[in-house]
Design a protein around this nucleic acid. Structure first.
Lengths: 354, 354
DNA sequence: TTTTGTTTCGAAACCGGTTTCGGCAAGGGT
DNA sequence: ACCCTTGCCGAAACCGGTTTCGAAACAAAA
């Protein structure tokens, strides 16, 4: 346990120490440890053993000066007011650092307040070689970060999808499947008037989730009614407003699917303001799995995403990409997990209007 | 591999380029740019100008190999279930990266799931020189991270205070002042039975805030009643439970100060469960300024902390510490900002019991 | 036996910076 | 006129690794 006290501040074990201990040269040690084929197996074994015994760990920034690779994952977070990713941030970071440190990589994070800021930050990190590649969270409909990094020939991996996915590694959770399943579940309860509150318009996921909602309606044999769809609600306030627009109609929905939990919490307020009770008078199924949903009244039925796993998978994908993996093989999907709580059920009375 | 694409991928400007352009040696350029005194001012100016013109930026990891400093701030986040810091994480990170990048530093973040994990992660980052120093968020009553880094002789700066502050740089917000002010404010409204729901016991801030609460009582001339104090509530659920214990008493408080917003939101539930209305029957003042508080019914009166500023100040303090600043001069305080919303006011009827 | 390969490793250059050392020239004192 | 500083900068070593090049040792082929 690293006692080694009183300020002696013991010198690190360098590659030269390992070489000297074995009577070989630094070059031999380096090649042995890096898997070059011109090293006898017996020698490689001796060197690996001794390195292990001495506790030798190469300094990544010393390697970087020759190789150009610093073994670091870059992550630039967009910080804006309506930021639905915040609740998951800690879990997401935990996942990324897990995936990174398993391979002895590290995570370099920065933040950007605007698109221009994002560009600058990315280019700066690339120019100063602070990261070998980037995880791009929250894929946009038209993602300028992708264009930038492609031009700079810097590896990246997307969290989410974007229309033009050619040669673009990504990890994503099929939110559209969840939306479809939500509609079908509500239809099975007997709902026929099912609304949809969508998430952020600038993100591609909102396009996908809308498709999922429509697919669900189609499978359930319910006609699509544009007035039942509200776009661009990612906060409680926006969900509240969207809910008011939905419930203020002559023939309001008896159930609403929300693309984002926080919007659903706002919808709760709108439902109550209309003198009704969420879950009893209006069913709600949402998506994300934020902790607040579990404490809401009634507890929110939702499709939970595993942000930690997402972070870990993204880190792994990026690392193999940087190591030369072909982009088209680096694509991964997961499903959101339905968590049944108390906000959905049969409609208050059977509905024959549709 | 590394096919070196058809993109010209122009070579970086190195220190040698600058030197050649001016007919001087690398050493001269280096010393000029790093403020050595044995360089003529005229030469220094020429070199600075040319470096600027060419867009030369030294590679921090190339510098690091000689200097041992990578110009990176380390941040290891403890990830556990009852994590009150999550809401602020994005803002906090934004602040830290702002403070860091202003000085051309970067932020290396990692996570730890347990104390042992935290130790390992810190030592690993130190051994591999991934960070020159650390920001330690959430100071504990007895902070083993401080002991560890002291022993390793690695610079750090604490977010919060800890009992033994000798030679320990820190930034903190005086939560105790806020608690005191909250009590006085409630007393001014006419409350005499003021409860207190404290935060996480393992953190030193809870000791301080309890003192602040007591100081407020003393100033208001109200006797301290131990049964009015609940400890260790940082989540909605814990706040709910603490609220039940408070309200279940024969002579329940008419106002409650909460050390943590999330606990206050739980207290709301307990108040309603007791058939009363928060803000009208029981006043609540809390601390943190989480966004959920603004959307709660009634909106929560609270002392908001500026996490972004905290992150930025901490980054600056750490950097000057690493540059040799004396620890005892690196101490900074801020105040929390009272945000008056709708959860506090006069007691329902005057109280003469005390 | 000589030639030709192979395998394996040492020697040294190299990456992009920093830092030490010493020498030259100008200035100051006597 | 001489010595001694002092200011300024070039030369070269150095940091901890990686990578190239070539040669020694041995085996296989001629």
């Amino acid at each position: 346990m690293q006692q080694e006290g009183l300020g002696v501040k013991q010198r690190r074990i360098t590659i030269a120490d390992v070489a000297d201990a074995l009577g070989v040269t630094k070059g031999t040690v380096s090649r042995a440890l890096n898997g070059y084929s011109d090293i006898a197996d017996s020698t490689r074994l001796r060197i690996q053993r001794k390195a292990q015994e001495l506790g030798y760990r190469p300094l990544s920034h010393a390697q970087a000066i020759r190789t150009g690779k610093v073994r670091s994952i870059g992550l630039v977070l967009q910080i804006n007011a309506h930021d639905a990713q915040r609740p998951f941030l800690a879990d997401f970071l935990a996942g990324v650092t897990k995936g990174a440190s398993d391979e002895h990589w590290t995570l370099t994070v920065s933040t950007a307040a605007s698109d221009a800021d994002m560009r600058d930050t990315l280019t700066r990190l690339v120019e100063e070689r602070k990261a070998d590649g980037f995880i791009l969270p929250r894929a946009l409909r038209r993602d300028y970060r992708v264009e930038l990094l492609r031009r700079l020939e810097v590896p990246f991996v997307l969290y989410g999808r974007t229309p033009d996915m050619a040669g673009c590694p990504f990890y994503d959770i099929r939110g559209e499947e969840a939306m479809e399943e939500a509609v079908l579940r509500l239809a099975a309860f007997g709902h026929r008037r099912i609304g949809f509150i969508n998430g952020g318009l600038e993100y591609y996921y909102s396009a996908l989730r809308l498709e999922g909602y429509k697919a669900g309606l189609a499978k359930a044999g319910i006609a699509y009614r544009p007035e039942y769809v509200q776009e661009d609600a990612v906060t409680v306030a926006q969900g509240h407003a969207a809910g008011e627009r939905l419930l203020g109609q002559a023939e309001p929905p008896t159930a609403v699917v929300c693309a984002v939990d926080m919007a659903a919490l706002g919808l709760y307020q709108a439902i109550r303001a209309a003198g009704q009770e969420p879950g009893r008078d209006v069913s709600v199924i949402a998506y994300d799995g934020v902790p607040e949903g579990a404490y809401a009244q009634p507890p929110l039925t939702t499709f939970a995403v595993d942000s930690r796993r997402a972070g870990e998978r993204l880190a792994r994908l990026l690392i193999t990409r940087i190591r030369g993996g072909h982009p088209d093989t680096l694509r991964e999907f997961d499903r959101a997990q339905l968590v049944v709580r108390g906000s959905d059920g049969p409609p208050p009375r059977p509905d024959f209007t549709n």
